[in-house]
Design a binder for these strands. Structure first.
Length: 479
RNA sequence: GCUCUGUUGGAGAAGCGGCUUAACUCAACGCCCUCUCAAGGCGUCAUUCACGGGUUCGAAUCCCGUACAGAGUACCA
């Protein structure tokens, strides 16, 4: 057999923006494709027309690209051999394949209504049947019976007929051998009454038509796999290799849900807060995957090189925000300065600057914070802490301002500063030394009163830098 | 309930039958540096791998049970 080109996909439903779980799925599929010189396909599974939201598809794609996960084929960059890339655009294709299954006698029209189905479920439950399976009420309907239902205005769904006592076995890329018995699975719907395929049917058709070779997806799809394998089997198609990744859980041990507000869910939120895409890439990469050589920091290329799906964890991973912060801080700290400026300047400009600074000044201000911040937006807050004068001091701060040293040190500093020609780190530093020599106050006694007087707080970046940023006039006006 | 999948420290985890008195990273804590906050440096943090049996000369590692957790059980994906 000729070795096929690896083709993988990320196939979100456009019911929301790109979130952490989706990004991680996409990431691992992307890595797999690139590792084996394959193609990464972006396709849209929009069969749930009620829940689709406008803009979701676009943002999914853009955020993916922002992360550096760049599709080889997508809704924007289709390959005519494999399109369309939106399921709603190929409805008649699914219809044809569903009809084929009916003709083969392995699928059938079902005229049961949702209410009837719900009632059936209830009855089974009451009779002690714990797991609900469709009772095949419509399996052998005659043409007359169907006609009668149709006259009542019923629109049929199409259900697939599961084989009897058949074991579906497959070798999961991350979990090893897994098997399911077909008896545990009821005849499920493949075409809804509105003529739109269900997920389990559409993926199979799409993956086959798009020649997808490997599917890395969330654990929640594990129990869908036998359903899909049944369809592959009926068509006589070779299924792709599946790998089921563990889900990501929140600190309470529950699967991350889009409604979970304790954790930021969407890539756009992280971008707005000043997270670096490479850092998120790296963080996501190590969430449920580890290298065999203890490395923690990977460039995209290194990740592609190192990736091996069999090292994917099979137990759930908890999303640890502190770890993400650390990773982001690492990336900020290690950026080269030009890239750093590009990244940080928008956040600097968001601060309430007391005067207008030249680009050069803004850059030197930014640099002061390079080792200080975890995320971009933190620089805005830190600058505002300096610029926006605090109206009320706490007791301890008042005390320091009323201390013996304060009474000596502050006037001395003010006087010397007003005479100083050049305000830069070196000169201001020297000035502090002089005061120390003349007044005898040093360390805390020297710096704290001035710090509190200027910034209204006991904490912050180095004094020299604060004065440098504020400038001579502004500093003196605060003394 | 049923089906499937898991369970190593606060978190991510390594470990794949003897090299493990359980690596590495984050967090936390302590010390150093220091005007403070960070950053940086140094150090501390599981005698034990959910529990109970078994296999073996030897088990965190293999097998079986139990407990717990998660996912699925839709005309959602």
């Amino acid at each position: 057999m000729i070795s096929e080109k690896v083709r993988v996909r990320y196939a979100p439903s456009p019911t929301g923006y790109l979130h952490i779980g989706g990004a991680r799925s996409a990431l691992f599929n992307y890595l797999y494709a690139k590792k084996y010189n394959g193609d990464f396909v972006f396709r849209i599974e929009d069969t749930d027309i009620e829940r689709n939201i406008p803009g979701a598809e676009e943002s999914q794609l853009n955020d993916l690209i922002w992360l550096g996960i760049i599709p080889d084929e997508s809704t924007e960059k289709p390959n005519p051999l494999y399109g369309p890339y939106r399921q709603t655009e190929k409805l008649d294709i699914y219809k044809q394949y569903a009809q084929k299954l009916i003709d083969m006698g392995v699928a059938y029209e079902c005229y049961c209504t949702e209410d009837e189905l719900a009632q059936m479920k209830e009855e089974q439950l009451a009779n002690g049947v714990k797991s609900f399976k469709y009772d095949r009420h419509c399996l052998n309907l005659t043409e007359e019976e169907k006609e009668k239902y149709r006259k009542e205005g019923r629109k049929p769904t199409i259900r697939i007929k599961m084989s009897e006592n058949h074991v579906f076995k497959f070798n999961d890329l991350v979990r090893g051998e897994i098997s399911f018995n077909s008896n545990d699975i009821g005849d499920f719907v493949i075409m809804k009454s509105n003529g739109i395929p269900t997920y389990n049917f559409a993926v199979v058709i799409d993956d086959h038509l798009m020649k997808i070779t490997h599917v890395l997806r969330g654990e929640e799809h594990l129990s869908n796999t036998p359903k899909q394998l049944q369809i592959y089997e009926y068509f006589g198609w070779e299924p792709p290799k599946f790998g089921h990744m563990t889900i990501i859980v929140n600190p309470n041990g529950k699967k991350l849900s889009k409604r979970d507000h304790n954790i930021l869910q969407f890539m756009s939120q992280y971008r707005d807060l000043g997270y670096v895409p490479e850092a998120i890439f790296n963080f996501l990469f190590l969430l449920g995957w580890t290298s065999d050589d203890n490395r923690e920091i990977f460039t995209k290329e290194e990740a592609i090189q190192a990736f091996d799906p069999s090292r994917l964890s099979s137990s759930p991973s908890m999303f640890d925000n502190k770890r993400l912060l650390w990773t982001n801080q690492y990336y900020v700290k290690h950026m080269d300065n030009d890239k750093y400026f590009e990244f940080i300047l928008p956040f600097v400009k968001k601060a309430k600057l007391p005067k207008s600074y030249s680009d050069k000044e803004l850059k030197s201000i930014s640099l002061i914070f390079k080792n200080e911040i975890e995320t971009g937006s933190q620089i805005t807050d830190m600058l505002n802490d300096i610029f926006v004068e605090k109206e009320k001091l706490n007791e301890e701060e008042e005390q320091i301002l009323n201390s013996e040293s304060a009474k000596v040190v502050i006037p001395a500093f003010k006087e010397k500063l007003s005479k100083l020609e050049i305000i830069d780190q070196e000169h201001v530093k020297f000035l502090f030394k002089e005061i120390q020599k003349e007044t005898g106050f040093k360390g805390k006694d020297l710096y704290m009163p001035i710090r509190i007087k200027i910034t209204g707080a006991m904490h912050g970046i180095e004094m020299f830098n604060i004065i440098d940023i504020l400038g001579k006039d502004e500093t003196i006006s605060r003394l």
